[in-house]
Structure formats: structure tokens, C-alpha cells
Amino acid sequence: MNNTIMQLSEAIIDGNIMEAKILTQKALDMGATAKQILDEGLMNGMNEVGELFRDGELFVPEVLVASKAMDTGMEIIKPFLKEGDVEKKGKCVFATVKGDLHDIGKKLVAMMMEGAGYEIVDLGVDVSPEQLVDAVKEHEPELLGMSAMLTTTMAYMNDTVKALEENGLLDKVGVMIGGAPVSPKYASEINAKYSADASSAVELANSLISL
């Protein structure tokens, strides 16, 4: 069984969608729990993909295919996750900020957080501070995740935090930010928390939820 889960990780890294589907089902049939398949197979593979992408060994198209392979596995285990011991930890609203159309990093983070037990509300790309404030009012999430890939759009993260503060919402939601131009220093300056990649975003979310 452990060998099958290890092969599943490799299938995710290779972006082999059909293989990921077959191995996920096989692991379930062999008696692996959905949580085990998620943590040791799907997440493990996707974390490796994130590291390879960061190191320049994988590129955007390969990351997209890998995330599709993970999605295929997730579809199979999702019903079992809901029945099993992975309870919803909280709700998170995600968006790529105004003026920015990049969403691969955001999608990966959202996918991993969903797998880790979070309810995800993804607003998509090019989302204004006003729309984010409205979404926080409507969905009442514990967390808000913002992504930016352009230095020119980063300022909207600050605008959003200020708008949350003006609306009395900042103390009700943990703000997580990430993306290529974003740094821990910038996050600290605008009263947000920084996440370098998808796997550390899950750890950050867990730490913010437990506060």
C-alpha cells in the first residue's frame, strides 16, 4: 500500500493524470484512508512540484498539469474526506488582486488548503479591495488570501487591508499574502502574514486559525 501511495506522489510530480486516478483508486481499494492518500500521496507530490517550480526545474505548464493530476485524485477521495476525520477548519476567501490576472499560485494554495480541510471561496483574478471587503462581509471567513505577481499590483493588498480596517473587519479575519514580488517585510508593513509557497500557506493558515 505504501508503495502505491509513493507511486501516486510520482504520478503527481510527472503530471500523469490517468495514472494519478488509477493509483488513488487502487490505494483506496487496498485500505488506505483518504487522509493518508491526501497527505502522503497527493500533497506530498504537490509539495515536491512546488519546490521544483521554485527551483526552476518545472515550469508553469507542468505545474498546471500536476495540479490537474492532483485534482483527479482529490475528486476520488473527496467523499471519503467528508465522511472521515478531516473536519472543516475554517473558511478562506481567495483572490488575485486588482490589475493582476495570474492565478496559478493562488489555485495551488486554494487546492492544498481545501485538501487540508478548509472551505474555499475563490473570487478569481483582478479583484478590487471593495469586492474583497464585500466578500468578507458576505462569507464571514476566518482567513483572506491575496496573491499578486506584479510589483505594480501589490499596492492593492495594502489598500484592501486598509479597507478592511475602515470597515471594522481586520480583527475578524487573518490576512495572508503571497506571490513573486511579495516579501515577509512587505507583509509585516501592511499588517498581513506572508506565505512563500502553497505548503507553507497551509501551515500559516493552521497557525492563524489556532490563534
Rank of each mutant, 00 (worst) to 15 (best):
P184F: 11
N2E: 14
A32Y: 02
K78P: 03
H139S: 12
A32I: 03
T152G: 02
K162A: 12
A198Q: 06
L211M: 14
A110D: 01
K106L: 14
N44G: 04
K106C: 13
K35M: 13
P184L: 10
D29L: 10
A187N: 04
Y156M: 03
G15K: 01
E87K: 14
A66C: 01
K107Q: 11
G145H: 13
D39V: 13
T153H: 05
V65N: 00
V175K: 04
K98S: 07
E87G: 08
D71L: 08
F59Q: 11
K35C: 10
Y186C: 03
G168M: 09
S200K: 13
V63L: 06
K107R: 13
T153Y: 00
M176A: 10
Q7D: 13
N167D: 08
I177H: 07
M157F: 08
H102S: 08
M6L: 15
G174E: 04
T153M: 01
M157G: 05
E51K: 13
V202A: 12
L58Q: 14
S199Y: 11
A196P: 05
V127M: 08
F94H: 00
I37L: 06
N158G: 08
N44Y: 07
M157C: 07
M6A: 15
N158M: 09
G168A: 10
I104Y: 02
D134K: 12
G73R: 04
E119F: 11
A135K: 01
E140W: 08
K162M: 09
